[in-house]
Amino acid sequence: MPDWFSLETLTNLTQEYRALGPLFGILLPFLEAFLPFLPLVVFIVANVTAYGLFFGFILSWAGSVAGSYAVFLVIRKYGRARALGFVTRHVKIQKLIKWVERNGFGPLFLLVCFPFTPSALVNIVAGLSDMKKNTYFWTLALGKLIMIFVVSFIGADIKALITQPIKAGIVIFLIAILWFVGKAIEKRINKKVEADFRSISNERRNKKGESLE
């Protein structure tokens, strides 16, 4: 059985990846926006390993922003079509849409900043909301700038992660922190969505009650 985690194997894989060219480095993060089960973090690490921290980061950032914005534009244009009605009718989606329309840039920016939050859901909700196209583009550009740079910086020297267990432990610890913080923010936003939705429902019931008196 070959040693998949040897420096020789890693070097060969990096050279093969680099040989595919920079467009491949952009294409994979782009596709992840349409196929969210693909591992964006792995693609980012592969890019910085093959092309270096700066160019690997640029390729990952450009591909991810372009893909996410493309999903946003597709949902904006076709999201309310009958074929995609199952998306717009989802109760959670409806609640998130209304909450985003009330709160705007801030919550989406926070979600985009963390690598383990549901970016596909964010793109869909933004596309179905009344958020302006330019606003969402800059939300993506700035949020993913932070997120992808952090992941790129952590994964820039993957050889050291193999040969230096202490550094590998620190990286795993940092990734765990990013995961927990991202999930905590996601959970907090979900609670605010539910609270805001209940508040709106109570206001509507009160107004109906007043109109009947």
Rank of each mutant, 00 (worst) to 15 (best):
S60M: 09
W61E: 00
A62C: 11
S64I: 01
S64K: 00
S64D: 00
V65K: 01
V65N: 00
A66I: 05
G67D: 00
S68N: 05
A70Q: 04
A70V: 09
F72P: 03
L73P: 06
V74E: 00
R76I: 09
Y78R: 12
G79V: 10
R80N: 12
A81W: 13
A81T: 14
R82I: 08
R82H: 09
A83Y: 10
L84R: 06
L84A: 08
G85I: 12
G85Q: 14
F86I: 15
F86C: 08
V87C: 07
H90W: 13
H90V: 08
K92T: 11
Q94S: 07
Q94N: 08
K95F: 07
K95T: 03
I97H: 00
I97F: 04
V100I: 15
E101M: 10
R102S: 14
R102L: 15
N103T: 14
N103I: 09
F105W: 10
P107D: 04
L108T: 02
F109Q: 04
L110F: 15
L111W: 03
V112H: 02
C113I: 13
C113A: 15
C113H: 05
P115R: 09
F116M: 07
F116E: 02
F116S: 06
S119Y: 05
N123Y: 06
A126Q: 01
G127R: 02
S129P: 11
D130H: 13
K132R: 15
K132T: 09
N134K: 13
T135A: 08
F137N: 02
F137K: 05
L140T: 07
L140M: 10
A141T: 12
L142F: 08
L142D: 02
